[in-house]
Design a protein around this nucleic acid. Sequence first.
DNA 1: GCCGTTTTCGGCCCGACTGTTTTCAGTCG
Length: 575
Amino acid sequence: MAAYNKKEIIQTLEHIAVYLEIKGENAFRVSAYRKAAQALERDERTIDEIGDPSKLKGIGKGTASIITELREDGRSSFLDELKEEIPSGLITLLSLPGMGGKKIGKLYKELGVEDAAGLRKACEEKKVQNLAGFGAKTEEKILKALDDFGKRPDRLPIAHVMTAVEDITGRLNEFTGINRFELAGSFRRGRETVKDLDFIISTFKPEEVGSQITMMDNIETIVSNGETKISLELAYPEGLIVPVDFRMVEDDAFATTLHHFTGSKDHNVLMRQRAKEKSEKISEYGVESAETGEVITFKDEPAFFAHFNLPYIPPEVREGYDELETKEADLALVETGDIKADLHMHTTWSDGAQSIKEMVEANRERGYTHMAITDHSKFLRVANGLNEERLKRQHEEIRKLNEEYSDFTILTGIEMDILPDGSLDFADDILKETDFVIASIHSAFKQDEETIMKRLETAMHNPYVAMIAHPTGRLIGRRDGYQVDMDRLIQTAAKTDTILELNANPNRLDLASEYVRKAQEQGVKIGINTDAHRFDMLTHMPVGVKAARRGWLKKDTVVNTWDVETLITFLNRNR
DNA sequence: GCCGTTTTCGGCCCGACTGTTTTCAGTCG
């Protein structure tokens, strides 16, 4: 058994990189440590399974010996030496905007600054502005950064920026001088959290567009304002501050700029390396031939990828892993247009805002062919959960309503609680009469992993339970959820043929993409559902689909793409 | 520090913006 696990080793390598950065080491040497950490992270094996780390690309003799030392002793003599040399208080200064290793190194060497307090003192005594390369403005900025330090979260859950996205999109649609625009960045890649929003704008009049942008009425700060790039912090209700970048280019360069700012950074590095093999150079503006200096542009991203003999790589999988080596067939991911049904939602019968009829109409309008009504069960009193008698009455109402539609099917359903003692809220004779039985945990989150797993496994082994909803109970940026052994959950789901949900609510996205990918690999079916409690929450479906695509899900894995007959056959598999 | 069908040296993705300079370094994405 290793003294340090893989995660601890990765963190230590990243620590070393930070120390070296402050020491003013060669930037490539610094990034070599980060690359080594990434190489470990990307390998799915444990540190013991990996064996000789120098076999991995990006890990050579130097970093391998540090990794081996950490694995065996749980410490690194190299890091210990660095810690002797560099005060640890300098590390946090790296997170101040505008402060990098070079500047911090200079402050340390020339002014003896060792931490945030020392930096503040040096600024207040106006010593910083006298350093070569520093000035009065830099000093002011540092003081402001120190004041703001820790006030704002590093990344924002996407649920928090959706209003901003709608607001900015609406404004750009009204602006003059814009040919087209698109939101790039990690939002386009479907990440759970974002650092900022990146809008790419095609225009031949950057000054005209720029002045409209800087006139927006909710600007908190203009971070930078150049000829083609404007960075702002925009203010939204409840004190929310959203950093936004606007990048303006002429239409010819739109595709390559969109690709560049969609990232990820690691994906771009892979693409540029590939270009280099062809003696070409990729930038935002196009692809330049090294021989002729000619720059070619592309009408869209697929054409750009085709130039490098690559299939279209969807934004959601551009993470710099193995997407360039992937077969085209594996890049055919589920799309929102494939979705035929939403199978988890609530009505006024429990804690929803709309009636059954209203929800049915809203689902029909979305173009679905079927749906399931799944209110809470009796254990969940705060949500007005249904007891056996009310459930039966609801089923009658649904059956009657079903007769009104020849082209649409409403499945009866329930979101049944798995009780703290591991039992289910309804007996089998009730479940038997229900088309789509969801089981989920809403209580006793603090139980130990074994108890939680027993609860989930009881539900999965029940022949009438079709799906486990929001399997970990997490809320992004707010709570981690309960203790789930993910490998065990996926294995049991595979064995019992139980659907695992990818809850499309942007606050949940539960299961996370990395786990739906693992689940698909083991043959587990995934359900993408909005869990809507109101009309407008039905619109979260594309958010869930994006998260599914990040997990490389194919259409057939997702039960919501099946037609109603196929789904019903599946639901009756154990009955 | 890592890497190599241009391999043991000399590169390592590329460009915008700011603040400091007066042609460029540092930071950021």
